[in-house]
Design a binder for these strands. Structure first.
Lengths: 206, 206
DNA sequence: CTCTTTTCATAGTGATCACTACAGAATGAG
DNA sequence: CTCATTCTGTAGTGATCACTATGAAAAGAG
């Protein structure tokens, strides 16, 4: 413990030679396409251009890198899907826009198909149960955001007071998860949008 | 090529010492819980009580055992879910019963949660893309069965002729897939049933 | 009995897994 | 400058992966 005047982000030592955002984007794509267990460290090396020590110095472990990629995904694709939930008014149209956003994002030809979180780490090996819990927690957070939106719609008088907001939230969550599965299986944007339109029929009348 | 009088199931050689059904049941449970990649051969050995040579002699490979387990699942749990699709009349109530069956089966406390096929092998490693395709094909078959049921309902006049049966089938497929995800995340039977009830609101009126 | 066939048990195979020891290189602190 | 610190590249670590070589055991055929 020598003198360490400031707690500032002391730029001591050799500086990093890689762009963290770029690395996260490449690694995210690998995890997105192959899942946590299916993504090998050697493939992550190839994709990021980083040698193992750099990865471990920056992210601690494969799981650390994975969780950083989950955050990166949430901030990017995830926010583009759920953005209507932050709108001024909570109503049927906002919910519909969320589903349409998902249809668009999950079928983007420039990225892996489906959602990186909705259908990730559903069944992992015995040694990686904590990874499953981490992804589960993120799904729960999204489900909570949807339900909060529905409660808000109810309070604003745009959703029937009799509606079961928890069940409705689970329903729309299921649609998003199902769209993720089917996008991965090859469904295109138009098919996902048509499904989303059908799903909106579950929004209670009135 | 010596004399081989009959092509009958010649019971020549040392007989098997294990019960194939029992082995399939145990292996299925392991794959169901941990997925294809997450299930290690050593765990499958422990669960089935079989040594590697017995497994490979009987099923050829890990993938061969996996696909045998998928068939075993389809014949058991799967058929208990989709059984109403074979009913004499195709209508709203039949579709509802499928969802309710799924809610019950996916939350059975005596088995792994969720569906072994609906949400399996969605993102696998580079070396196992054929496993992903095999599971995808089974999901496509189920989706086709649902759509055929809806077409039948339409022909029988119990579903509006204007209804988009393909989109409706995708919708109910998504509900089943979403129930599988959420069951795995801890949703109980009552929650899944409530979600299914909401989803039935997407069945076109008339 | 012998011969062939099939299954079973032991004990491994090379390959790949996630991860790290080590030393050199690049910076700031003093 | 020297020292401490942080990062990078090389070259591995033991562990586990799916899988198999080998030979004995257990059955039918002749």
């Amino acid at each position: 413990m020598t003198t360490m005047e400031k707690g500032k982000p002391g730029r001591r030592g050799r500086p990093r030679e890689f762009d963290q955002e770029r690395v996260l984007d490449r690694a995210m794509t690998v995890f997105w396409r192959h899942g946590y267990e299916g993504a090998s460290l050697s493939e992550l090396q190839r994709a990021t251009g980083l040698a193992p020590p750099s990865i471990y110095n920056a992210f601690g472990s494969k799981q650390g890198l994975y969780e950083a990629c989950l955050d990166h995904y949430t901030e990017g694709v995830g926010s583009r899907v759920t953005e209507p939930l932050d709108g001024a008014r909570a109503d049927r149209e906002g919910m519909r826009r969320v589903l349409m956003n998902a249809a668009r994002e999950f079928s983007d030809p420039d990225r892996p198909r489906g959602c990186m979180i909705s259908t990730a780490a559903l069944s992992v090996g015995e040694r990686h149960t904590d990874v499953g819990r981490a992804v589960c927690a993120r799904r729960a957070r999204t489900l909570g955001a949807v339900e909060a939106y529905l409660v808000r719609a109810q309070q604003e008088g745009r959703l029937s007071a009799q509606a079961d907001t928890a069940a409705l939230a689970r329903h729309f969550g299921a649609i998003i998860q199902g769209m993720s599965v089917q996008a991965g299986d090859g469904a295109d944007r138009a098919e996902l949008e048509a499904m989303a339109d059908v799903a909106m029929g579950a929004w209670p009348p009135g």
